[in-house]
Amino acid sequence: MGLFQKKNTIEQPQPETVDRHEKKKKSDSLDIFDFSGELAITVRDLDLFYGEFQALKKINMEMPKYQITAMIGPSGCGKSTLIKTLNRMNDLVEGCRVVGEIIIGGLNIYDRGVDLSALRKNVGMVFQKPNPFPMSVYDNIAYGPRTFGIRKKGELDEIVERSLKQAAMWDELKDRLNKSALGLSGGQQQRLCIARALAVGPQILLMDEPTSALDPISTGKIEELCEELKKDVTIVMVTHNMQQAARISDKTAFFLLGEMIEMGDTEQVFSAPSHPETERYITGRFG
């Protein structure tokens, strides 16, 4: 009797049928994104819930291509949560629910039918703690390409070399390719992780506090690397380090309690913040 009355009443944003057809056709390909536009990432009216708790509230952002966007804010403000939504890593978190749109390369990545592999191949991620696999340096970098069907030794060799060069590690590591990656120093491990992410040719690189576990010299190297990399990839970085944001980012976004307070050119945000909270945070009066 009551079986058909109690339907699920929550409205789900249904993607248009035409779109889905197109995606299905392309589902074998990894190049479902079109990065020819000016903006790499557009976030529209994004709400995110962990169960009952709303962790992000109505976020709207635009991140231009080939720039470094820094996200700052006190702990628990939602910036790490946001960066994880950008390649859907928080799908892993149980009870996590997203409402709104994130448009990357012309697609809303939360649409049904979006291929997660394709998304993450194009939107790479570097974590707070270096996480090289317990394999050799070579295998770490070749790991990604191998899972994407590249088996030929010549091609793999080339990717490994190119990625390591991109990450400015080739000279340090070319004689240690067969050594375990776990034997590297923390800074080297983190740059190796960047090289590993680069090996699958991402358009966007997400960095979640990539230097917080590193010493100042390693931090400096990674910052230099980011400056270099933004010629080819768009970088989004979460950082607790105000100077770091000021030094390397082009845009800065300030978050507080799940809301984005302001976003603008880094220089402007740091020299003339438009919100008093931003100013208080930047000058170190709270947080």
Binding site: L30, S117, S136, Y138, A142, I150, V160, K174, D175
Partner: peptide, 22 residues
Amino acid sequence: EFKGKRGNKVLNGEKTAVVYKK
């Protein structure tokens, strides 16, 4: 620890277009 397949130490730097597949 497990050891993966061994890589080449001497690499040739020629550029070819790499096609990533699923």
